[in-house]
Design a protein around this nucleic acid. Sequence first.
DNA 1: CGCGACTCCTTTGATATCAAAATAATTGAC
DNA 2: GTCAATTATTTTGATATCAAAGGAGTCGCG
Lengths: 169, 169
Amino acid sequence: MDTHYAGTPAQVRALGAFIKLLRAADRVTRATGGVIAAAGLTDSRFGVLEALYHLGPLTPGELGRKILKSAGNLTLVIDNLERDGLVGRRHATDRRRRPVALTPRGRELVRRLLPDHVRGITEAFRPLTAAEQDTLAALCRKLGRALEGPPEPPPSPRLRRVPSGRTTA
Amino acid sequence: MDTHYAGTPAQVRALGAFIKLLRAADRVTRATGGVIAAAGLTDSRFGVLEALYHLGPLTPGELGRKILKSAGNLTLVIDNLERDGLVGRRHATDRRRRPVALTPRGRELVRRLLPDHVRGITEAFRPLTAAEQDTLAALCRKLGRALEGPPEPPPSPRLRRVPSGRTTA
DNA sequence: CGCGACTCCTTTGATATCAAAATAATTGAC
DNA sequence: GTCAATTATTTTGATATCAAAGGAGTCGCG
């Protein structure tokens, strides 16, 4: 849908780019979702499995930061993956942080799906030349990086607490 | 997250573009969602309101095709908007197709939110130059169009039905 | 050693999302 | 006029999503 908004040229341009960006993302997601859906997975589940496949066991907090899901959502997604025997929660020294790891079955599923999934993505991007794909990636990266917000500071030694109220806003 | 996939150069390139496209779309959605959320709306609700604002009353089927939501989802989203007094379902000659229209209150809400929403989008895209925004839009459009699938054929005269079974797959 | 501050994850409540099935309405052949 | 085929929307069931609240666990000050 073209924009119907009557604004400044900068606004019309940004709105047009915004709509087309979201549409393209939606289209490629739908175009490439078949392999995942055929395996009985959802995008979110596959995202969790894929992250664990590439990076090894991760705590829910680490997973949430990697794949940009809220803690509450991840609890449910991990619960369902565990129920299906694709991941397992491990115990660790710090019992607040429970790493999630792939089971052998989960690892095998990702190993089997990834090549087809990647082939599907490559096929979906075929309408763009290699140079166009590089340009698209560079622009998306520039935009995404700028909107990332400042990186979280590394964990610092605890501040001494003061008697009156919290130290944070 | 950079790709960790060891594939052909074309695959690595497409995968990189894919990830960055989805990340950028996610980032701009989150960056621009504040105005909508502050008004107590979700992205989907606002999408419905915005489509009705620009295009006038639409049936759920037409809305679904415009904003790419399933019929079942739209029923719920429209139900909630109707409950909140922002849209109304109308009766039509063909009682299967019930157009949805903005109420005066819904129209006023969109009229009030749109300028701020568009300003937010323009601000979010500021990290890209005007030329870069145009290039991004053109590439996304090219990609999105290619993945659209053939447009639905216009409604055609009914085929004569044959006695044995259905004519469609 | 006790306890408050803080971290991490789970639970809760509401909403969104889809596919599939069900229901309601229309259309046209016989 | 009847009825099968078709169209459009709703309902159902399962899952995903978030924000906020709650529970479990850790840490360091006094």
